[in-house]
């Protein structure tokens, strides 16, 4: 009887299932099925056309003696750590400064400061390419003019990650700045008034009012930026193509090359699974935040 009731209930509410169905259909076809398919493929050697050869975990074992893979793994972690160090403090400082100065032009400033987020990574990647050109680039010309040596930004394996990092930061800072700014704005300004009456000094304000508001936001930004970092593709692809060598290549680029340039589909799937593994760990933190928020409502 109960069984029947449930099916009746479901039938009664069929419209709701119809409303939510597009996501679940797309998820099954373009995410869930690929996730399983990818796991199977990662156990084979396959060039995409001929017969597949079962190799077990050999693709995964080979990864850890593959110098290029290890370099890309290292690069990806490098981008991750440095982009957090560059983006979050700068975004926070700019947000705080725009919050503190009361100026009529604040809207104009914000409009300008948000422009990088709107600009295409590919176009600006090309701009950065000539900005960091060894002989003709603006950056090196300025360095030379003030008496420094020219830095071989894009052609040296030692520094090629930095222009990529600058490009990534340039485009990402506005977004995080906006998040911090709207967080600061959500603080009731009366709180500062009340604190003033109680004789609180700016440092106490910082400790008691600002940091408690900013800390959860900073954590949210940290997780968000981490996820973005491990998915990084466009910026290094345009600016350096991952080179010279593979000195600025990310894991997603290496996956792309293995899958679509040299057609090692099984091996590429294994790389994908390593990435999936890393990202599941990182996003489990995000998951917790999201579930908590969904229960609180809004």
């Amino acid at each position: 009887m109960i069984e029947k009731n449930i099916w009746q209930k479901i039938w009664q509410k069929r419209l709701m299932y119809l409303f939510i169905s597009p996501f679940f259909l797309l998820f099954i076809v373009f995410q869930f099925f690929p996730l399983i398919y990818s796991m199977i493929l990662s156990l084979y050697k396959w060039n995409g056309l001929g017969a597949r050869e079962y190799v077990g975990f050999k693709n995964y074992i080979n990864l850890f003696s593959d110098q290029m893979f290890l370099e890309c793994l290292e690069n990806t972690f490098f981008y991750w750590a440095l982009s957090i160090l560059m983006i979050i403090p700068v975004a926070l400082i700019i947000a705080a400064v725009t919050f503190v100065i009361s100026s009529k032009r604040i809207k104009t400033y914000q409009t300008i400061l948000f422009l990088p987020y709107v600009s295409a990574a590919v176009s600006i990647g090309l701009v950065f390419y000539i900005l960091f050109d060894h002989n003709a680039g603006f950056v090196n010309n300025i360095l030379a003019a003030i008496g420094f040596e020219r830095i071989p930004w894009l052609v040296s394996t030692k520094v090629s990650k930095f222009p990529v990092l600058f490009l990534v930061s340039w485009r990402a800072i506005p977004w995080y700045m906006l998040i911090f700014y709207s967080g600061l704005q959500s603080i009731n300004r009366d709180l500062f008034e009340a604190a003033k009456i109680d004789g609180a000094n700016p440092i106490q304000n910082l400790m008691n009012i600002i940091i408690p508001t900013i800390a959860p936001l900073a954590f949210f930004c940290l997780i968000n930026l981490s996820i973005e970092s491990f998915r990084r593709f466009a910026e290094p692809q345009i600016l350096t193509g991952g080179g010279p060598g593979s000195s600025s290549m990310t894991l997603v680029q290496y996956l792309y090359i293995n899958g679509f340039t040299i057609f090692k589909l099984g091996y590429a799937s294994a790389i994908g699974y390593v990435l999936t593994f890393i990202l599941i760990i990182v996003s489990s933190f995000q998951l917790r935040i999201m579930i908590k928020r969904s229960k609180e409502g809004v």
């Binding site: 690929p34 990818s38 996956l255």
Partner: peptide, 15 residues
């Protein structure tokens, strides 16, 4: 949301 789309580019391409 934990399943990153980029990591499964190969099966998605085959589909």
């Amino acid at each position: 949301m934990m399943v990153p789309p980029e990591t499964n580019v190969i099966p998605v391409f085959l589909i």
